[in-house]
Simulated scan of single mutants.
Amino acid sequence: MNEQELSQRLTVVGKAVPKGARLADIGSDHAYLPVALMLADKITYAVCGEVVAGPFHSAQTQVAKSGLTEKIVVRLADGLAAIEPADNINAITIAGMGGTLIANILENGKIQGQLTGKERLILQPNVGEANVRFWLQKEGYQIIEEDILAENDKIYEVIVAEKTGVKQQLSEKEVFFGPHLLAEKNSVFLKKWQQEQQALKKVLTQLQKAKVIPEEKVAAIQKELSWIEEVLSC
């Protein structure tokens, strides 16, 4: 297993991990990412956290098969509870979950003391990216990098953040679209929001046919549609 054998999505996540990092990979998916990064000599130590027994055993098997049991620890734990103080983690990857769940994992890790604020966060939400950005801004993190990619007919966003000491003030639109992605507006970004526009229009049509129209929900969707239209027309 090397970086070339990772999915494109995990390759982009891996590229944002600093050279020589001590990594915690939460929800590790067979430990593919830490194994690939260790074999590429990019990281020096890793913790793989899994909350379900099946994936936990799969990760253990992958690490053992790769001969990395001395350098990669696999733990059965909920979220950042997989991290112990002696691990000295300075990078955390959370990929392939919903944005609300990622934000909850980070919040719980902060409350329980596993998230110190010294780690680089590399986050790849499958949906609800705005929830992740909102949490990062609220907690004083700066989004230093964002990426967007298409793979297997799905579009993924990768958000990289650090506590830099500079409070980042994002507008509502920047939280929604992503400050770096909004500035760049590449072809994958435009494709994503064309698809979202069509999906939201369908939802709006259905809501407006309801016997009791949920006015707040309709207003929120109309606001998002106006933002999307503005971004696509520029």
Rank of each mutant, 00 (worst) to 15 (best):
L225F: 10
E174P: 02
E196V: 10
L121H: 08
Q8E: 13
L80N: 06
E230V: 01
K223V: 02
K192E: 12
D147A: 14
I92V: 09
V166R: 15
K202P: 00
L200F: 12
Y45I: 01
S233P: 00
Q124F: 01
L149E: 03
L123G: 02
E139Y: 13
D153M: 03
K191R: 11
V63Y: 11
A95G: 15
S233M: 05
L115P: 06
V166C: 08
L225G: 11
Y32K: 11
I111A: 12
V166F: 11
E174C: 04
C48E: 05
A24M: 04
R9C: 05
I122M: 04
S171I: 11
T69M: 08
M1H: 13
F177E: 07
Q62R: 14
R133Y: 09
K15I: 01
I143Y: 07
K42G: 01
H180M: 08
A46G: 07
K154F: 11
A46Y: 10
A210I: 00
K217F: 09
V160G: 04
K163P: 01
E215D: 13
Q124K: 02
K65C: 00
K191C: 01
L136M: 05
P214K: 05
G99F: 09
V175Y: 06
A64E: 15
V127W: 08
C234R: 08
F56S: 04
Q168W: 11
M38I: 03
C48F: 04
W193E: 09
T164E: 06
P85H: 03
H180I: 13
